[in-house]
Simulated assay, not measured.
Amino acid sequence: RGILVDWLVEVSEEYKLVADTLYLTVYLIDLFLSQNYIERQRLQLLGITCMLIASKYEEICAPRVEEFCFITDNTYTRGEVLTMESQVLNYLGFQLSAPTAKTFLRRFLRAAQASYKTPSLELEFLANYLAELTLADYEFLKFLPSIVAASAVFLARWTLDQSSNPWNPTLEHYTNYKPSDLKITIIALQNLQLNTNGCPLNAIRAKYRQEKFKCVATLSSPELLQTLFQT
């Protein structure tokens, strides 16, 4: 799963897809796999099919089926993709709307930016980077998307500025979370940021090492103080 998501990040970059498409793709993959068995060699087929479905839902101009076949070196035919698309959509009952971490992140970042005189692009890129890192990590499926988004904002603010508590009444009001509610997720997210497990999956890190994202993947956060989580 991790290798598949890592590759799909590269595909989304290649076709310049919006972040919502990537998040919805991963959501659809996980939802389908939760109740359906897929052979390992057909996981890539499921991945491009879910990205095709998500693209139709999120993009103004979605890539064609043939383009998704091409990106797999034509491992799968147009017919195979369309058959898989039918299977996935029928299983989902054509219910594609779902709040992802990106949905919440957009709102929470707006609240976080309120404490700055001018909006911080670095904060936005860093929070998005941290949230995207969780997509490829199976362990984060146990956390609610809203908690992942809030934790990404918390850790991004802490990474950029340790002079004050990264959480404030405005964020608590708009997220409905206290720092103590986020502690477990933030610690797990920091381990992911610092890559303490030596994870070889690199697409998201490579993406956010680019200048256009202010190289936020090169930043690391200092040790989290226990006082940050006291309410």
Rank of each mutant, 00 (worst) to 15 (best):
T175M: 07
F68I: 03
A217P: 05
F68N: 01
R205M: 07
S34H: 06
D137P: 00
E14T: 15
F229Q: 06
I38M: 10
Q230S: 15
N90H: 15
T21G: 03
F154G: 09
K16L: 14
N165F: 01
T25D: 04
S34L: 07
L8R: 06
A156H: 04
V18W: 00
M51S: 08
S221W: 02
F140A: 05
N36Y: 10
T196I: 14
T100N: 09
E172N: 13
T218Y: 04
T100D: 07
C61T: 12
Q226C: 06
L28A: 06
P119A: 05
E10Q: 14
G93E: 08
I147Q: 10
I71Q: 00
V65K: 07
A127N: 02
E13R: 15
Q190R: 15
N36R: 13
Q44A: 13
I186D: 00
L155A: 05
A127F: 03
F154W: 11
L133N: 01
G93L: 10
L126C: 12
C215R: 14
L130W: 02
N165S: 13
Q87K: 15
C199W: 02
A62S: 15
P63E: 03
V26A: 10
T72E: 06
T103N: 13
T196F: 03
M84S: 01
M51R: 11
P200A: 12
L135I: 02
E122H: 05
Q44N: 10
L105C: 06
E172V: 14
P166N: 06
P200L: 12
R205P: 00
A19D: 11
V81Y: 03
R106H: 12
L201N: 06
N195S: 13
I29V: 15
V26M: 12
C61L: 07
I187A: 03
P179D: 13
R42I: 02
K102S: 09
Q230G: 10
L8T: 05
L89T: 07
L33F: 09
A127S: 13
S151W: 03
R106D: 09
V148D: 01
P200C: 12
W7S: 04
P63A: 08
V216M: 09
